[in-house]
């Protein structure tokens, strides 16, 4: 373990993470194509990962739990993408579209 100083305050990483997260939220809310929504979700996951790693590096260097968490996040994200894409494929096959606002059978 060695200490390095890069004169970048922790807040910078956190603000970057917040911006990326909000962009991801915007994408989830506006995109029609389910695959694009999934991409926006990946943006949000990455933003969270940045948060974790930044806290691990600055706040608890001895335990570096944040980094371990980031690894798990990537693992789960991979699983999630596989499953979600399979579901999207199935929806597309059944209903002929991958646009979420056209899949609205669950209503009155």
């Amino acid at each position: 373990m060695e200490a390095v100083s890069q004169q970048i305050p922790l807040e910078h990483f956190l603000v970057l993470s917040a911006i990326l997260f909000s962009i991801g939220v915007y994408g989830v809310l506006t995109r029609r194509n389910a695959v694009l929504i999934l991409m926006s979700v990946e943006l949000m996951l990455n933003a969270a990962s940045i948060n974790m790693v930044a806290f691990a590096a600055y706040a608890s260097p001895a335990a570096f739990t944040g980094i371990i968490f980031a690894i798990f996040i990537i693992t789960i994200a991979a699983a999630e993408v596989g499953l979600a894409l399979a579901i999207i494929l199935r929806i597309f096959r059944n209903r002929g579209t991958a646009n979420v606002d056209e899949v609205d059978a669950l209503k009155w």
Partner: peptide
């Protein structure tokens, strides 16, 4: 009130946010 239920996921997500 039933017309609140559009069945469109983005509406629900927006409401959550």
């Amino acid at each position: 009130m039933k017309f609140q239920q559009t069945g469109k996921l983005p509406n629900y997500a927006l409401a959550m946010v």
